[in-house]
Computed example of a mutant assay.
Amino acid sequence: MVRWQRGLWWFLLPSFGLLTVVLLWPLGYAIYLSFFDYYLGSSERTFIGLGNYIELFTEARLWQSFWTTIIIAFGSVGLQFVVGFALALGIYKLKFSARLFTMLLFLPHIVTPVVAALFIKWILVSNFGLLDATLLGLDITPPDWLGDPIWAKISVILADAWIFTPLIMMVLYAALQTLDQSLVGAAQIDGANAWQILRHIIIPALIPAIIFTVSVRLMDAFRFFDTIYVLTGGGPGTATETITMYTYQLGFRMLDIGKASALGVITLVVVAIILLTINKVLTRIYRRGD
């Protein structure tokens, strides 16, 4: 390294200091509290080591919330990716009004998730909601969208997909703009059909963008809280209680900060493992395509 370049490290100090204050310090403090039996408002902290972790792993509620999180996260992100990719391809193929359709399709993402959830809840509320009123007017008995355990999960997945599909659509549409048209033209000359072009040219070229969108959305989905809190509150019962909702219940309802901190650390580790696995698989596919 050139001598004058060594001084450039000083320019990293403000960013590193801010990162320490807003991220590393809270994370370290949460890890510290996870080893204690500590309730909010209490002046006593009893060191119990891995006691919180052991207690959590022996609870059926943790595993239920974990699998609920997996179902909702992968269900919503999978639906978002399929619909968002289809919309991005559709807009990419448009010869006119592409900007208008892009703006209209992006509107759901502009709305604050809490406001969007309130709007969706008004549509899905039993008997008096817009959807139920429409179906009853057609002599169709609607299900209990937010009161039935299965339909509540489906409603939460659809709500999250409606809000965040535009984000995936925009990222993939932007990536499509960088597609090398000479490859597409050469494939067409060689007689490749639309499916072969999509599978062997377009999708491999979009793998970096796909890795980015899937990673970002999965991280958000595992922290899924506001929409579920507004729509179902984790109910009926614990049917839509995700890990984040369970952490909220432990920390702010039961005031068990030690246990809530342990669950936060567990969530961080699980999400990191899942993201690293997905990134490794997609990267291997991308390199194999090269």
Score class of each variant (00 low, 15 high):
52 N>K: 12
148 D>M: 06
186 A>S: 15
10 W>E: 02
168 I>G: 06
23 L>F: 13
26 P>K: 10
86 A>D: 00
82 V>Y: 05
138 L>N: 11
9 W>N: 13
244 T>H: 05
62 L>F: 15
150 I>D: 11
271 V>W: 04
67 W>H: 03
10 W>C: 13
102 T>Q: 14
175 A>W: 04
163 I>H: 15
172 L>I: 03
35 F>G: 15
232 T>A: 05
68 T>Q: 10
264 G>W: 01
35 F>H: 05
124 L>T: 08
232 T>Y: 11
126 S>V: 06
78 G>A: 10
280 K>D: 02
16 F>R: 02
125 V>W: 10
190 D>Q: 04
30 A>D: 13
228 I>Y: 07
6 R>C: 10
135 L>A: 03
118 L>P: 04
140 I>R: 09
24 L>A: 14
232 T>F: 05
15 S>W: 08
42 S>E: 08
271 V>M: 03
122 W>N: 13
212 F>C: 04
157 I>F: 03
185 G>V: 10
172 L>G: 05
113 P>L: 02
96 F>W: 08
12 L>W: 07
61 R>E: 10
91 I>M: 12
194 A>P: 00
257 I>T: 15
255 L>N: 03
73 A>I: 07
75 G>S: 13
215 S>V: 13
5 Q>D: 04
246 Y>P: 00
258 G>H: 05
20 T>K: 05
106 F>C: 14
218 L>A: 06
286 Y>M: 08
171 V>Y: 07
231 L>I: 01
218 L>G: 07
179 L>R: 02
